[in-house]
Nucleic acid binder design. Sequence first.
DNA 1: ACTGCCGGGTA
DNA 2: TACCCGGCAGT
Length: 410
Amino acid sequence: MGKGDFKTRRGAREGADGSAAAAGVGAGPGGGGGRGCASRPPRAAPSRPSRACAVGAAPFLGGVPPAHAKCTCARDAHAPHTCLTGAAAADMDEMVAAMVLTSLSCSPVLQSPPAGDSASRAPCDPWKESGDVSDSGSSTTSGHWSGGSSDASGAGGSPKHSSEAPGSPPRDDGFDTDCDPLLLAEPAPRKRKNSLRVLYKCLWPGCGKVLRSIVGIKRHVRTQHLGDGADSEQRKREEDFYYTEMQVKEEAAVEPTASPTSPSAPAGLQGKLEVPLPEAPLPEVPGSALSQSAPSSFWHIQADHAYQALPSIQIPVSPHIFTSISWATATSTLPSLSPVRSRSLSFSEPQPATPLLKSHLIVTSPPRVSLGARKVRGEAKKCRKVYGIEHRDQWCTACRWKKACQRFLD
DNA sequence: ACTGCCGGGTA
DNA sequence: TACCCGGCAGT
Ligand SMILES: [Zn+2]
C-alpha cells in the first residue's frame, strides 16, 4: 500500500510529477517487499570503515576495541614502543629480533605499537567487509553495496589498478615505494626532536652492534653477516633488514622505525600515517595482501564507474589525485578510506578540514573507545541534496538505491 | 528534521 | 543482478 512515505520517489513523483512511467518500472514492486527484515543487524562492532577507502586507508577506523592487541610490553601505560628506552636495550634486542623474523621480507614491520592493535586484530574477527576491503583490494572504496561484484570479482579489479600493480614489472619500485608507505603508515609514530641521535643497530642474531652511520652498519652487515662477495641488489636490500635505525635521545628514547629502507624512504611523505582513531580502522594491511594493496592507490575512481550506468550524464568524478595513504590506517579509522575510508581519502573540493591527521605520536588515547564508527559521512552534497528528491531520477544509481553516492564522492 | 548509506530484502 | 527500503548514525 502505499508506502506512503513521502520519501519514496514513487510517492513524490506521482504526486508531484505525475509522470507515469518514469523510471520506476515495476509499479508495484517496491511496496511489497519490504520490511520484513529482522530487527536490526548486529552491526555493532562491524560498522566498518568501509570504503574508505582508501586503501587502505582508510579508509582510513578500527571498529574493534584496541584492547586486545598490543605488544607485550604494552601493559604500561606507555606506548608500546616507547618502552624500549635505552635502558631496555636487552628487551629491544629480543623485540627487534622478533620483528625481524616476522617481517623478514617486506612485511609489516611493525606490528608493534599502535599498530599493535590493528595488526593483530587484522587477522581475526572483524567484519566481513573488512575482509573485503583488504582482500580484494579492489572493491574497497566503495563498499559496493552489492553490485560491487562487477569489479570486485577481481578480474575487473586487478587489471585496473594493476597499473601500478604488484605483479607488474616495476617490482623494484613497488617494493620501495609502495611498501614503505604502507608499512610506515601503520605503525610508526615517529617523532622528531631536535637533538636526536640516530644509531643503527645490527639485528643479526647474536650481534647487536650499534653504529652511528648507516653506511657503517650496512657495511657491517654485509661483511660480517651476509658475506661480502655478493653483489646484487638483493644483497643490498637484505642489508636493510638486518639493521634498524633508532633515534636516541638523551633519555634514550628509542625509536624502532622500520628498518628496511629507512634510508630510501624518508617518510617525508608519510606525514600523516595513520590515524589512530579507534573508530576508524580502515583497511588494514593484511600481510598477504600487502603487495597488492599498495598499488591500489587509486581505485576508487574506477569503482564508481561500475554502476554509473546512468543515462544522461555522468559527471566527472573529480580529482583523483590524492596521495593515498590515508587509509593506511586502516583503515579505515578513518577512515580510513580507508579509510576508510573511512572512507577513503578524498578531497574533492572543499574539503572541510577533516579531523584527520592528528598526531601520530600519541599513544593512543585511551579514553575514547568509541566503537566502530560508521564512517564519517561525507560532507559533499550528494545527489539528493543537489537534485532534490523531486528529481530522483537524476540521482546517481547509488543514491537512488540509498547506497554511497558515487557521483559526488567525498 | 534531514541526510548519507549499511545491511538486508524482494523480484 | 537490479532495485528498493528499514533504520541507524551524524548533522
Ligand atoms: Zn549520488
